[in-house]
C-alpha cells in the first residue's frame, strides 16, 4: 500500500534537549496515509528520542506534532487514543503477565468489545504462534516471539500509525525477515507505519520513503529505493564502501 497523498502525521521542527545536550534540533517529518516511512541513523542520532517525542514521553523544547492536522497535547494516553501506538525499543513485553493479558492491555483505550475480538483474530492471523502461547507468561517467550507479541500488543490499540523503535534489535536475521514480512502485511491492511532502525538495509527495503538522521538533524530524505543506491548512504549506513 503506497501513500494516498493525505498527510496523517506531521512533525515540525522538533527540538528535544537532555539537560544541555540537544538530542533533536529541528527535525521535521511527514507520514502520508498508508505509507511506510523509515528513520535511519547511527546509535545516538536521536531516533528513539524522536519516537518518544511523538508519543509524548519526552518534553519538546520546540516544534509541533500534528495528527490529522490537529496538534497532539504531549500526553501519552491521548496520543494512543488519537491513533499512535509504539512498539518500544527492546520490546518491553510485560513479562509477569500472560500473552493474553499483554494483548488485553494493548486494547486498554478501547471500549468496543466486539471489535476487540475481531482484532484478536487479526493479530493471530498475523502471528499464529501467539495463539498457541496465549496462557504462557510473556517472559518465557523467545526474543522473536516477544517482538511479535510487542507488535501484536500495539496493534490491539487499532492504531492509525504503528510506530516501531528498532524492531530488528537483538534478533536473528531469519527472525528479522519474518517480522519485516509481517510489517508489510500489516501495512497492506491499511496501517501506516513509521519505524526507526539502525538496520538501514532492512528499513530501506521495507519503507517507501526514509529520513536519515545524524546527531539530531536531518541529513537526507527521499525515496527509499533511491537512498539504497545513494553512494554516501551505502558507504555510511549499509557497510558497502563506494
Amino acid at each position: 500500500m503506497a501513500g494516498t497523498g493525505r498527510i496523517l502525521l506531521e512533525a515540525q521542527d522538533i527540538c528535544v534537549n537532555y539537560g544541555a545536550i540537544a538530542a533533536l534540533s529541528g527535525f521535521s517529518l511527514k507520514l502520508m496515509e498508508g505509507e511506510i516511512v523509515a528513520v535511519i541513523g547511527a546509535n545516538g542520532a536521536g531516533k528513539s528520542t524522536f519516537m518518544n517525542a511523538l508519543m509524548g514521553m519526552v518534553k519538546l523544547a520546540g516544534g509541533t506534532i500534528l495528527l490529522d492536522s490537529y496538534p497532539l497535547t504531549g500526553r501519552t494516553w491521548k496520543a494512543v487514543q488519537g491513533g499512535l501506538s509504539l512498539v518500544p525499543e527492546g520490546r518491553r513485553v510485560f513479562a509477569p503477565l500472560t500473552v493474553e493479558e499483554n494483548l488485553r492491555i494493548g486494547a486498554f483505550t478501547r471500549k468496543d468489545a466486539g471489535d476487540i475480538q475481531e482484532d484478536y483474530d487479526w493479530v493471530f492471523s498475523l502471528f499464529p504462534r501467539l495463539k498457541e502461547r496465549l496462557t504462557q507468561y510473556a517472559g518465557t517467550l523467545s526474543g522473536g516471539e516477544q517482538q511479535m507479541l510487542a507488535i501484536a500488543r500495539a496493534l490491539m490499540a487499532r492504531p492509525r500509525v504503528l510506530l516501531l523503535d528498532e524492531p530488528s534489535l537483538g534478533l536473528a536475521p531469519i527472525v528479522i525477515r519474518d517480522i519485516f514480512k509481517e510489517l508489510r502485511r500489516i501495512n497492506e491492511q491499511g496501517v501506516s507505519i513509521l519505524l526507526v532502525e539502525q538496520n538501514a538495509k532492512q528499513a530501506l527495503l521495507l519503507s517507501h520513503r526514509a529520513y536519515v538522521l545524524q546527531t539530531g538533524r536531518l541529513l537526507k530524505e527521499g525515496n527509499s529505493r533511491e537512498l539504497l543506491q545513494d553512494p554516501d548512504i551505502r558507504a555510511a549506513y549499509l557497510g558497502q564502501g563506494a
Binding site: M57, Q81, F94, P96, E101, I105, F108, A157
Partner: peptide, 24 residues
C-alpha cells in the same frame, strides 16, 4: 478489571504501561 490489569502491567513497567494508553 481493566484498571486492575493496568496496575499489574504498571507494576512490571510503568513507562510501557503508559505507552498502552493508560493515564499514568
Amino acid at each position: 478489571t481493566r484498571w486492575g490489569l493496568a496496575i499489574r502491567a504498571a507494576a512490571c513497567d510503568l513507562r510501557t504501561a503508559g505507552l498502552m494508553g493508560v493515564n499514568v
